[in-house]
Design a protein around this nucleic acid. Sequence first.
DNA 1: GGCGGGAGTGAGAGCGCTCTCGGGATGACG
DNA 2: CGTCATCCCGAGAGCGCTCTCACTCCCGCC
Lengths: 337, 337
Amino acid sequence: MSETAPRPTLEAVAARAGVSRATVSRVVNGGDGVREPLVERVRRAVEELGYVPNQAARSLVTRRHDAIAVVVAEPETRVFADPFFALQLRGISKELTAHDNQLVLLLTEGRDDHARVGRYLAGGHVDGALVFSLHLDDPLPGLIQRAGIPTVFGGRPGWRDGTGEEVVYVDSDNRGGARDAVRHLVGLGRSRVAHITGALDQTSAVDRLEGYRDVIGDVDARLVVEGDFTPAGGERAMRELLDRCPDVDAVFAANDLTASGALRVLREHGRRAPDDVAVIGFDDMLPIAEQTDPPLTTIRQDIEEMGRLMARLLLKGAGDAMSGVVLPTTLVRRASA
Amino acid sequence: MSETAPRPTLEAVAARAGVSRATVSRVVNGGDGVREPLVERVRRAVEELGYVPNQAARSLVTRRHDAIAVVVAEPETRVFADPFFALQLRGISKELTAHDNQLVLLLTEGRDDHARVGRYLAGGHVDGALVFSLHLDDPLPGLIQRAGIPTVFGGRPGWRDGTGEEVVYVDSDNRGGARDAVRHLVGLGRSRVAHITGALDQTSAVDRLEGYRDVIGDVDARLVVEGDFTPAGGERAMRELLDRCPDVDAVFAANDLTASGALRVLREHGRRAPDDVAVIGFDDMLPIAEQTDPPLTTIRQDIEEMGRLMARLLLKGAGDAMSGVVLPTTLVRRASA
DNA sequence: GGCGGGAGTGAGAGCGCTCTCGGGATGACG
DNA sequence: CGTCATCCCGAGAGCGCTCTCACTCCCGCC
């Protein structure tokens, strides 16, 4: 196999520059307290030898790794398979890179993996963790909490930890966004505004439902149908809705995928959007939202910023003073409502 | 901040089990050459103390990291933002996990990042790299090659390296899949089969075009329009196509996104699919392919398996005997062709 | 001109682990 | 019963780095 050439050590650089290891170390780590000529000499030696610090040796003594783990629980692989998570990851990556941190990606696949992830995090391989696990009953967050490393959650977790401390998380304003969506529909003069929920074991779905309730007030139970964030779920729910309430004139779908399914069923039934039934989604997930017929009016969240913020909070060692950070959403008007 | 309790060391385990560090080490690393009763005692001590090996200390001496990097070049973030890459990542993750390796994700953002990634890989932080960089002119592969660590590419790179060695890569059978697609259209009795290409600076697009050519033989140049793998590109190309060749009766689109754009334009122009114009895509990218109207006939590739295979090749230290591995594709019939 | 103090540098002690090597116990065999 | 090979196990030497601590200068000050 490829025989890697022996990489130069601190020692080698020190010898070449005619100084001690300690001095080289100082220069490599910022150069404070070393006189300029020496700094220069060391820099040159580093350059000439192509010296790169051995991270393992460094971590061994500093107990820092300049690496954080991103944990994605299996149920989220659906989320993961859409642009949502990818964007978040990108935001995370940018922020970490800016602070010279590495991103270790942990995807879990079932129960066994939970233990594995727990062990890994407790094993002190990373300085912190960003965790995506939005399900109410997920044991993963508990495990991670117990691992005792700084953690920031993506999305509001469905519980508070036992110690009474608040959990640190970043979420978008699901409830507020939902309110905006429903208000928009109401503002269009619609009086029979339905809601197709997301999977209600996820906090985002619960929060969006709350937002809907905030605006509608006295909710006609028949106008709320449970979906699951998928197009198929949207179709099923829309059918049920048309069946139960033929006079429905607006639908707030829990996300764009759901909305796309709803739109398809409406078309099947000869209902025009937005003329007969106005439809609004959530996420502004491209290309879905732009590809529907008609293009989807929806609520946009700044997903990349969410990721970036999560990383920033983690690196800053937040968690003392704060609990949750909620990012605003904006209404994107297209044709469907 | 969270004061992490001092984690137990090998030494501690050894003391508790009443053996030497060396013996504990042996047990922890497989337990060969240690008598059963001792193994048992050490296991128990490990259990009781909750001992987890310090990876940094281990790496320092073994020079192995049990970690590999996944490098995604910026131009691929488009790819990354669709399910394609996510699935590949999942395959990679599964395979790595099965071999107790960690996944370090490096997303590059522009030129500066190339240098950073090069330095990182050359820095000996990981045991190998999986690289996604499908553009013909990308400098990244060269950089990585120079870093001198085992590498497997995702998708056929657009060059051979200077040393004359073949590059190791995993790709799906773009050319063969394209042939199947076009043959299917021809088998439907279509005689004016057009092709909307992908971005031709990517090998996958080039290969799919080749497959088209393989079947059509004497290609009418007007029937080939350049696209860019996006719905918008598909729309543009389809318009041009209808303009140039009103008699077109079938379209092989370079991917599903392109096909979705083409379908939309056909609908606009009152052409029915598949009756007037049969359309076939590539990727079988869900939910796109299922959401088009009509649902899209397309070429499926086993994306997760690609990822898994890449990881397997890398861990096995392939690269001696082999160059590229090409995975088969299958035709998925839906309604559009 | 001696002296205290601050700043710059080097020596050395580990960080927690693996791995070689040698010694002691054990079993096979003559 | 002696000899030798075999098998286990422990001692100890690092892996490459950081960081403390002591030492040396060189300044300013009385």
